[in-house]
Design a binder for these strands. Structure first.
Lengths: 114, 114
DNA sequence: CGCACACATAGATAAACGTCAATATGAAGA
DNA sequence: TCTTCATATTGACGTTTATCTATGTGTGCG
């Protein structure tokens, strides 16, 4: 059970950190190199690198290397997928799990008015 | 820094769990009582109760008690706020942090084409 | 009252996470 | 080649998280 949302939860978790959410926000206007991100945050360089690697692992960002520098930018495809996954959670549909759930007997009938 | 996204990250983290995402999905069609949720998942009753309390703490759900039973439903206000917070991350705007970031000197000029 | 049921709370535990200092890698310049 | 700079990797450490068992709380029923 709850298998369907493992991927959704993993992607959300990748974003569910103040530093990583900030990074995504900063990158939303275009690519930025690590050294500039580093100067903005108060965290150490390895910590920032770690956060970037998590975002990269979940394909939320892509990295372009140019000489010594690394430029990071938002991966729009994954961002769109995230949006779709959120709709999957919140927008009720015919395939919703609730239909199975509601057939299970509880001791009281469920109200349908909510 | 990155203070602005602390609340956003906390709300995302509340949702960033397979069980909790599933609960939100099931609740999206209307209120359901705990005993029915419990029969769906393979986790223990205290664990489910714990997940529900996290969702409640972050106002993602509301609880209505009726006799011995607890009925849970989605708090649409918070879901809308979550959507707004995600837009705040991903939709570039004039107040974006990147404008401050980009003024910091890196050793190379930044490209604006990404 | 006394018991059973639905759910919450407390406490313990193992795994995951965020962070840092130290070190490695790899590219550019002297 | 040697050094410096930008970034990644490693390894350690304290905190948080998800889970369980055991227990508490409150409701309804006989």
């Amino acid at each position: 059970m709850s298998v369907d949302f493992i991927h959704t939860a993993a992607l959300l978790k990748a974003l569910a950190d103040p530093v990583r959410a900030s990074i995504m926000h900063i990158l939303s206007c275009g690519e930025v190199c690590v050294c500039q991100l580093h100067q903005y945050f108060t965290i150490s360089q390895p910590t920032l690198s770690h956060h970037l690697s998590i975002l990269r692992k979940h394909k939320l960002i892509t990295t372009r290397k140019e000489g010594k520098w690394s430029y990071h930018s938002v991966n729009a495809t994954t961002v769109k997928e995230l949006s779709r996954l959120l709709d999957e959670i919140f927008i009720p549909g015919s395939e919703c799990l609730c239909h199975t759930i509601r057939q299970v007997e509880c001791s009281l009938p469920l109200r349908q008015d909510a």
